[in-house]
């Protein structure tokens, strides 16, 4: 099951399959923000001088691993908790503003 996140109104065709609590939404939103921040720092690394690059590389890789696992874990956990409808070729999305979960396929 693939899952994506949309931050705002999406133009994709989708079907609402459930929702999460605001607290749960905050969890995934924070994870998304961190994952994005780490990813975009990675993209910037080639432009940073080698010394700085070396000083943070290991810490960055560790953080990415940890964050990705938490991110994946959240979807697994909530998917199991709420038993959302799924589709072999589809993915779930969350609308941050409304906490709704959508199945897109």
């Amino acid at each position: 099951m693939n899952f994506y996140i949309i931050g705002r109104n999406s133009m994709k065709t989708k079907k609402a399959v459930g929702s999460v609590t605001p607290e749960e939404r905050d969890e995934i939103q924070n994870l998304f923000e961190r994952k994005s921040a780490i990813t975009e720092l990675f993209k910037s690394l080639p432009d940073i001088n080698k010394e700085s690059y070396d000083s943070i590389y290991e810490k960055l890789v560790t953080d990415l691993g940890r964050t990705t696992r938490s991110f994946q874990g959240w979807w697994d956990d909530k998917g199991h908790k709420y038993s959302w409808e799924s589709h072999p070729e589809g993915h779930w999305e969350i609308e941050f503003e409304t906490c709704e979960i959508f199945l897109v396929h």
Binding site: S36, I38, S44, I48, S55, I56, K59, L60
Partner: peptide
């Protein structure tokens, strides 16, 4: 922006993410 990302990560600053 590159420097901000790098330095805020290095400092574990709340603004990093």
């Amino acid at each position: 922006c590159n420097y901000f990302k790098f330095r805020s990560f290095e400092l574990d600053h709340p603004w990093f993410d």
